[in-house]
Design a protein around this nucleic acid. Structure first.
Lengths: 347, 347
DNA sequence: CTGAAAGCGCTAACAC
DNA sequence: GTGTTAGCGCTTTCAG
């Protein structure tokens, strides 16, 4: 396509040696300058820096990592980027790692265990300094890899279960329970559940279990339930709500497994002119920012996403600094607050 | 904290040599088996595979990459994860790269050039097989790095400007222009603009420029404008809309620089009982899925996000396979379609 | 089909 | 302060 190459760009990437020759300083000293390591006289330091900049030298971290047996990468393995939850976790992680030499590298599993296993294998083969991974449920092979990797592992989001090493999260069972208790206390009795079909979203499942368990304790059963898969969550929330209200007209509360479908349901109820929460109450889960812009505030429970990211990163950073000679097995359980908004309190 | 280590996990990660000794096969042959390279007898192949699995060997890609001078990583550099747009681009990229040995690695710049420069430097130091980077505006240093890296570079999202190598995107100037033309054609005349304050979001700026340019051609000026920064976009859209409607009551159209604030504005107008689009028309930009769940469909223009990701990945993948001996400089301009929805056509 | 030798580009550990 | 010498764990190349 293109005729001839204009200015021939160096086909071979530059090496330390090139900088060494250009500056008349030994490779070793160049290396020292570029890493701010050891004492180098201001004069040579300057010479080297100039030469490196002029050549446009970019160090080869591959060689550096192999020689030093140190990789400043943290593997972050999450199920998805497309709901607002994981980007916020990432924000928390970056916030902390930005203060350190560590750098996050993200892998996405799409909630599929085989995929998780593969992504994990791939990332571990780069010998990262630590792993932050969503959830406590992993294939046996994945668990084995994490255990034998010999690096800090922080499982995040969920604390209901056995951890491999450290954990930072909330109890989703408890979150479900607390929400149910608040709903009952507000006087609602005919309660419907709306959620994702995903059998692999263990956290949604645990919330559901905690929820039904608390209802059962009060002698109440879910009055109706509806699940969805794919598509626009807002639209699905709207549609499922319509279906449920038509199928079970005497229902007086709708618990959504996430805020997005909850928001869709809320918009639907409002459009239909239903009295919220007089006639029907609603609650979601996550505490997404989006809710602030809705006509009325959906009850929700903040999942502490940024905080979880920050804590997980802090654990990795501390252990990376301590270089393995300290403990491990930290367990941090955050307590999500129920935010009743305008859709839960019966007036 | 922990007492004594239970089963001592191998402090030293396993090497090819460990597998070699365990299987009684030379390192070289083990390497061949593990990479499916060259001919190896079924018998030894089996021996090696078993040994590797039993030991839980994970190859060291650092050493592999250094030796082979090949890294199957693609650097993807984007401004943000927290609006729906880049996650969708990522989806497109993954979709294509999943069929190849290449793997995307994401870096986030938060719309800051210094940050972009640093992230780019960091990623290039891992010697990736290609770079996909958002936008055409980069610091001189960043441009120099991209040019001298000697790997395929695809700049995405935007085609209004000079490219370093390949480009895949839409013309945001044209998008702004087309939207303005449609608005004028529908009969609106007192038009307000609402957007982000970010001076560094060049694509939003170009849309704005194209928009005002098309209006000017019809002898019309923006009647009012309002900008925001940070916070919940939905809420900001609502607030800005209120401000503008109060300040400029005779306004008859609101053009939002993104769908999220547009959705907030739409909800506000609907709540106020305004006749949309009879009394006031609205339009956003991006074509986010969320709009499907709104009470009425906001006019928008699809930014072809997934498609852009797919095309960019395809270019990198093809050139990686061709190993540099082919062209470069591809230029793909996608044409976003205006989706008039329910808020643009005057009835 | 299998193995031995020679690096990949850098840094740790010592000399000077 | 600065230079020298060995590798890091793998793959390339070339011999059997």
């Amino acid at each position: 396509m293109t005729g001839e190459i204009p200015k021939s760009p160096p086909r071979r990437p530059l090496t330390l040696r090139d900088v060494s020759e250009a500056s008349g300083v030994s490779e070793m000293t160049v290396s020292r300058v570029l890493r701010n390591r050891g004492d180098v006289s201001a004069a040579t330091r300057q010479k080297v820096k100039t030469a490196a900049k002029e050549l446009g030298y970019v160090p080869n971290k591959i060689a550096g990592a192999l020689a030093s047996q140190r990789v400043n990468l943290v593997a972050v393995i999450i199920p998805s980027l497309s709901n607002m939850v994981f980007p916020e976790v990432m924000t928390g992680i970056s916030e902390v790692l930005d203060e350190t030499p560590l750098q996050p590298v993200v892998g996405v599993t799409n909630y599929r265990p085989e995929r998780e296993e593969k992504v994990l294998y791939e990332m571990l083969s780069w010998r990262p300094s630590g792993v932050i991974i969503a959830g406590l449920e992993h294939s046996d092979a994945a668990k084995a890899m994490l255990r034998t990797a010999g690096i800090p592992v922080v499982e995040i989001m969920d604390t209901d279960g056995e951890a491999i090493d450290a954990v930072v999260g909330i109890s989703h069972r408890r979150a479900g329970r607390k929400t149910a208790e608040a709903i009952l206390k507000a006087g609602f009795r005919r309660i419907g559940f709306l959620g994702t079909k995903m059998p692999l979203d263990h956290r949604a499942r645990k919330r559901f279990e905690g929820f039904t368990e608390a209802l059962a304790k009060a002698g109440i059963e879910i009055a109706d339930q509806e699940f969805y898969e794919g598509g626009s969550a807002l639209l699905k929330g709207r549609e499922m709500t319509q279906v449920m209200l038509e199928r079970t007209p005497d229902i007086d509360f709708l618990y959504y497994s996430n805020d997005m479908i909850g928001a869709g349901g809320l918009l639907y109820c409002l459009e239909k002119g239903l009295d919220v929460p007089g006639q029907i109450g609603l609650a979601g889960f996550n505490g997404v920012e989006l809710l602030d812009g809705l006509p009325c505030k959906l009850a929700t429970m903040d999942a502490c996403r940024a905080e979880i990211g920050r804590e997980a990163a802090r654990i990795i950073a501390e252990r990376a600094k301590a270089d393995g000679d300290d403990g491990g097995g930290e367990r941090i359980t955050l307590s999500p607050k129920l935010e009743p908004g305008d859709t839960l309190k019966r007036r």
